[in-house]
Design a protein around this nucleic acid. Structure first.
Length: 414
DNA sequence: CCAGACGTTGTT
DNA sequence: GTCTGG
DNA sequence: CCAGACGTTGTT
DNA sequence: GTCTGG
């Protein structure tokens, strides 16, 4: 499933993460966006949706509350954002609350990562899941609007889930629907309802996801800050001690990433293998690739993160390391003054919709790092700059049965 | 016709 | 809003 | 999703 | 266990 996430992206990074570079993107309610390392249902998060009917060729960066409140909710009810913060992709066509949103209310949510809790009996250990290169994830989502008693229109969204990918099954049986490339994101955003959007609603099986355990303190919704994603050194257990005895280097591999040796030993030691199956399998997924703390290249380049670190490391008043109780930490910052400035409710930023070259092939760590520097840069990226997160894409036959033009087709996708 | 529901998770 | 149930 | 509470009476 | 609150 997906009930917590990190969203501290800069507003401008979000359309970019959704592969909307160079397109006109109107901002709505972005003053409500509070970047956070611990977003839960009920919080406002930016989503990308299509522009309304009349204005077909645009996209909107619209800050909405996580946790769907259907439009038919009674005005007298108080909105419950925790009831429908996820939608099972397998059944959205059957459920009245979701089915009606499929034709025109699909949207994208970009985050740096999300959290899942691994259950061991009564214990719960949160893990942070992210791309190895720290690029943003794009989730498939549906939104709706509801008018409350005061006549205020509340926009809310729900994140689609699917079964867990094979590499994440050990952690949890569900995961958010990740749209891992431009084609997928564009089809979800703009594809006609008749197009095969259901082909997108499957577990993300690529090998570029990574994860690691984090502090259980982030389970509290009011706990926020970089501490949420700091890698936790898992406590050693008995099995480990035994493993360690046989292992030559009984040090470095304890963060839930077991060596082949260990797995083998556990299987021997545990006649009941169901236990060992609950452990994280040995890994080629590297939690550390993205260093335990904040990668400098990432941290120092976004205004958000700088601000965050100041708030948490210096004020010391938050419930971070010391775990002191007290005032809930203020949210991590705002873009209202920085990027959005005196923007009014509705504002548009126009980017020359010119000559958008399709994402270019790239691979390797050096490349991804450079990508990030570009992404985090302050200046408007050149159209040529590849700021699209490239992921392996299932080549699908083009122009299949899309009757409705997509955003990309308007601008002549390569 | 009207009334009432409309959801996901996890856990046992 | 829209579907199911009575 | 997780965390935290989970109660009554009487008196001020 | 179960409900409420964030």
């Amino acid at each position: 499933m997906c009930g917590r996430a990190r969203c501290s992206l800069r507003p401008d990074d979000i359309p970019r993460a959704c592969h909307l570079n160079g397109r006109r993107v109107r901002h709505v309610d972005m003053n409500r966006y509070q970047p956070s390392y611990n977003v839960s249902p009920g919080f406002s998060v930016p989503v990308v949706r299509r522009e309304d009917e009349a204005n077909d060729e645009g996209a909107v960066l619209h800050c909405m509350k996580w946790g769907l409140v259907p439009s038919f909710t009674k005005k007298t009810d108080k909105p419950d954002h925790y009831r429908m913060f996820n939608a099972r992709s397998e059944t959205i066509k059957e459920k009245a609350s979701f089915r009606r949103l499929i034709p025109k209310n699909r949207c994208l949510v970009a985050v740096e990562g999300f959290y899942e809790w691994k259950k061991d009996g009564s214990k719960k250990q949160p893990y942070y899941i992210h791309f190895k290169d720290a690029g943003p994830l794009v989730f498939a989502a549906l939104f709706d609007s509801w008018k409350n008693h005061e006549g205020e229109v509340i926009y809310t969204f729900t994140i689609l889930t699917t079964s867990a990918s094979s590499s994440l099954e050990w952690l949890h049986d569900r995961m958010p629907v990740i749209l891992g490339n431009m084609d997928a994101a564009d089809m979800w955003l703009s594809g006609s309802p008749s197009s095969n959007i259901d082909t997108l609603l499957k577990p993300y099986e690529e090998s570029d996801l990574a994860w690691y355990p984090v502090t259980a303190a982030m389970g509290k919704a009011s706990f926020d800050g970089p501490e949420c994603i700091k890698e936790l050194q898992l406590k050693t257990n008995e099995t480990r001690s035994i493993s360690q005895f046989f292992s030559k280097k009984g040090d470095k591999d304890q963060q839930g990433q077991k060596s082949h040796n260990k797995v083998a030993e556990e299987e021997i030691l545990n006649t009941d293998q169901t236990e060992s199956l609950k452990q994280e399998p040995e890994s080629d997924h590297v939690g550390h690739l993205c260093s335990p703390v904040q990668p400098e290249s990432f941290t120092s380049t976004t205004a958000t993160d700088i601000k965050v670190e100041q708030d948490f490391d210096e004020s010391g008043s938050k419930q971070s390391l010391t775990g002191q109780t007290g005032n809930p930490p203020e949210k991590v910052g705002t873009y209202a003054s920085d990027n959005v400035k005196s923007l009014k409710e509705e504002e548009s930023e126009d980017i020359k919709p010119k000559d958008i070259s399709p994402p270019q092939e790239e691979s390797g760590d050096s490349k991804t790092k450079r990508y990030y520097e570009e992404l985090s840069g302050d200046a408007m990226p050149l159209p040529k700059a590849v700021n699209t997160h490239i992921r392996p894409s299932k080549k699908k036959a083009k122009g299949a049965d899309d009757k409705q033009p997509t955003l990309f087709s308007y601008f002549g996708k390569g």
